[in-house]
Design a binder for these strands. Structure first.
Lengths: 239, 239
DNA sequence: GCAAAAGTGTTCGTGTTACACCCATGT
DNA sequence: ACATGGGTGTAACACGAACACTTTTGC
């Protein structure tokens, strides 16, 4: 099968062979104003015209699936360095109505401040949805999204991936709100502070918030190098 | 693409359409004499003749990938109810030398007592290997196996899946040895007992070991219904 | 001064660790 | 008697939950 692509260097439209019967679909998560959100695409063409779904696409014959997922996200959002992880393959024989297509699910975490939506040439619109306001999606995309969320909630408890949803500089309260939203729990502020600070994962930037109508909080950043130095075994972020 | 299969009801050889460029490979784990083992297959045909690899096969056009994995294991081991979970898809464009093939990795846990190896018609031999004595495998199968082990080690800490590797009836020491082997840790016997028993996951069978040259230990079984009743959130098996 | 959120201190109870010890059984 | 593994008791300690309290800043 041959599909059209925009060549990333020359900007020209090129035709390339893609894998048949295999696609990629990706749940892209963002975090804003204390709410976890996911980026959905409104399809402009084909049988699912007008309906919302996860962004997705084809895998070129000569690229790995991870690279295909990175390329798709770059085409869609302009971001090339984001947190991206494969979930699993979804392969119900009836999941796609026009034939047997297996899709490989991915999920990505992005810092919304870095982000710039570009509606691609097969998508008429892209929009952030809060995760408790997700509409009916095409095919099995609700299932993929539910699985993504479930996976995210598990993953965030064993690895410091939550930081990928926050801006470079954040306060401890921002971080706590993120954990509260993702895990669906209420946390105690003093205890959360102590727990996170004791892990020594954060760098104190010696800066404070600006323009807030209360005592300004210290700003921190997460340093992945510190994390790697401290342990490869992983921390426990059970809350 | 069309492949030959043995029909499971009639026993006759039938031809069925399978998905092109997608396969399944499965790491099957067993536990015996305190050691974690994996079942490998020696390929009888094709370019990988004589080499060892993970058991695998094709996905029929009208079956889900999970069903395909169950069918493969049933064909190979005769067991239909075992613990089986998808890992993820492996899709390096060069992973398979004769063309672009994506494989979907699975891992299974079996009770070796129930087990009966049948070398299938594409496999000349099947053999259990201890996980620290794995040879060089075909294609990317070492990578898939390493990933499986890593996944198993993580999963066993959050869900009671280890029991799938033990016989129906086991002693607490057997269970402890299993955790020690999988997690690679030394555990304190008294503390392990208390921790597991406090979880109330085990049923005391009111039976004891037979024919042991020391005080006979109580036998227990794991009851998945109890587990479901106690919590859907999962236990913590950190050791 | 008051509101709002930052940040510190302290208590209390629970869970984990480490290790000493006794029990039952076969040789 | 003793070796082997089964099984119990307990003291010391670390940790997390709960909550009272002080600090900083803008209005």
């Amino acid at each position: 099968m041959v599909k059209k692509f925009i060549d990333e260097e020359s900007g020209k439209i090129v035709e390339e062979k893609v894998m048949n019967a295999i696609t990629i679909d990706c749940a892209i998560f963002g975090f804003e104003q204390g709410k976890l959100e996911v980026l959905l695409i409104q399809h402009a063409e084909g049988i699912s015209k007008g309906k919302w779904g996860l962004p997705g696409g084809w895998i070129k014959e000569d690229e790995s699936i991870d690279n295909a997922a990175h390329r798709l996200l770059r085409e869609l959002t302009g971001i090339s360095d984001l947190y991206l992880e494969q979930l699993k393959a979804f392969g119900d024989p009836k999941r796609f109505p026009l034939g047997r297509v297996i899709t490989i699910g991915y999920y990505a975490l992005i810092k919304k401040e870095d982000y710039d939506v570009r509606a691609g040439f097969t998508a008429s619109d892209a929009k952030w949805y809060k995760i408790d306001e997700i509409p009916n999606l095409i095919y099995d995309h609700n299932e993929i999204l539910t699985y993504s969320l479930h996976h995210l909630r598990n993953r965030v408890r064993n690895a410091p991936i939550g930081f990928n949803l926050l801006p470079e500089k954040f306060t401890l309260l921002h971080l706590m709100q993120l954990y509260q939203e993702i895990l669906g729990v209420e946390l105690d502020k003093p205890n959360f502070r102590r727990k996170i600070l004791k892990m020594k994962l954060l760098v104190d930037l010696k800066e404070k918030q600006q323009d807030v109508s209360h005592r300004a909080a210290k700003l921190y950043k997460f340093d992945p190098e510190i994390y790697n130095k401290l342990t490869e075994k992983g921390f426990n972020f059970e809350m």
